[in-house]
Design a protein around this nucleic acid. Sequence first.
DNA 1: GTGAAAGCGCTAACAT
DNA 2: ATGTTAGCGCTTTCAC
Lengths: 304, 304
Amino acid sequence: MKKVTMKNIAEMANVSVATVSYILNNVKNQSIPTETRERVLEIAKNLNYIPNLAARSLVKQKTGLVGILVNKDVHQGFWRNLQYAQFITELESLLTRSGYHVVLSSLDASNPNPQIILERKLDGVFLIDANEDTFYHISRQFIAVPLVVIDSVIDDPLFFKVMPDFESALEKAKVLVHPHPYFLVMEQFNNKQLAKKIKKHSNLNEDDIYMVKNERELALFLEKNKGKKGIVVNEFLGSIAAKYFSPDDLIVICNSECPDILTPSIQKIAFKSPKSTSAFEVMQKLIQNNDLDKLEKYILIGVN
Amino acid sequence: MKKVTMKNIAEMANVSVATVSYILNNVKNQSIPTETRERVLEIAKNLNYIPNLAARSLVKQKTGLVGILVNKDVHQGFWRNLQYAQFITELESLLTRSGYHVVLSSLDASNPNPQIILERKLDGVFLIDANEDTFYHISRQFIAVPLVVIDSVIDDPLFFKVMPDFESALEKAKVLVHPHPYFLVMEQFNNKQLAKKIKKHSNLNEDDIYMVKNERELALFLEKNKGKKGIVVNEFLGSIAAKYFSPDDLIVICNSECPDILTPSIQKIAFKSPKSTSAFEVMQKLIQNNDLDKLEKYILIGVN
DNA sequence: GTGAAAGCGCTAACAT
DNA sequence: ATGTTAGCGCTTTCAC
């Protein structure tokens, strides 16, 4: 039951650790007689050898760890934790399948501490809903680390960003509400630029936009806007809104890939290919330093 | 911008790496003159030194990594990914606050590969919805690793399990449906024993129990059971069910800590203290080898 | 073909 | 009070 190392295998097989390493890692350009190879492999299997990735990381200068960092506000509603569930799950799955391990960490939006990136020597980082105030501070520290920013507008050509094409989504929504008067409900994103962008494309003035603080206030806002039609960004927020507002008058922009959580009578606008796939692909290219010049800095997921 | 190590600091400060280590880690029983201490600290700060945790892990034989492993079926509905979102978020938060880093990994229920536990030398592991068929296989490999099993009935007194008290929840639900005929809708848990237990406590026979395969079939089952009352395990499943069934006749057992996602007209049964807190506390005790004998092997979260 | 040895960045026992 | 040293488990160069 005790941990077994290459040294143990080497001793049992009467070879050096170097040889064991060559065999176990299938190193090219090292001709090993089949006999030895099989003997070592056999012993490794019997001993149930599992490599220690921390040790390997140290010498390889690659950890195989990728971070998913989620910016969070202490006071955010419970549904905020649902919004990235699907995305994170899919992303984790893609990463795991390509041999990475995923480190998940929430950042305190008011004081994000990205120490973990450097401490754990993450090979890549996905940052969700970045707080741009602190982003620049942070980002300078690890320019060398591949970084993909999700759902965040960042005025820096250095970084790659993936997000839904809210502009098109809103265009579509506006067609659907037309010609009724309407309002907009959305989260208080930590990334204020994104909020700004969405507001702008809604063509509404501040009075008709509510950025959700909590469920009670949301209910009040909806109460005040009876008779209008409402555009809600996000299906979970939409679910909550539907508790206080006629579903038939709601158009929900589904940016969490869970449109089916909504009551059928709500009109839905969904996005194309999952964000996770795009995010993953960008990261792969970043890590492999591949085709970077061909890659757009902003990758927008189109509406369906 | 290049990585800075203790060696760099040592050289700049004209001391040995050992001294730097002592100072940076505030090692007891090592008297360091304030002058030296401050000089080293100053230099470390200026260079923006960040310790390499892989290296530290190697010598300390503790990685500071805790795993959250989620057993998943390839064909499961999208809402399954929501069910643990809140739990995982809270758990991550607790762990991060106590200095652990979280590794998130999904396991393929039909062929769970827990390599990661040993490869990454995880200090502890939360396993969600364990597949008992393969559990024993797996578990033998890492008896030494603190393991907390979530939402899984495992007939092995060796492991600690945390889950909602479904028995009480069902008691309560049965009171609410009484005297109407009723049916039960629940997930196809990967942990079949849990399903079995819930079924048993529902007092129903197989015909009146539907374990969800997909949304279409669920809709058919609900259609067939019009007129009865329905008990649904899980609020997200409840949301889906409410698309096809009168909400007033639904009682939902909310095991995802998101009862507020449901339409108000649905009757809800919720649980007390969050599961995450209990799970976390058990893990802490396990890791510290603390009061283990006082600890129940099954920790049930009571209904509200 | 195989292995000795250096070294990744860090800690800790032991000298001095 | 500080430094020397021996690793932790692994990879990889270079010599044999």
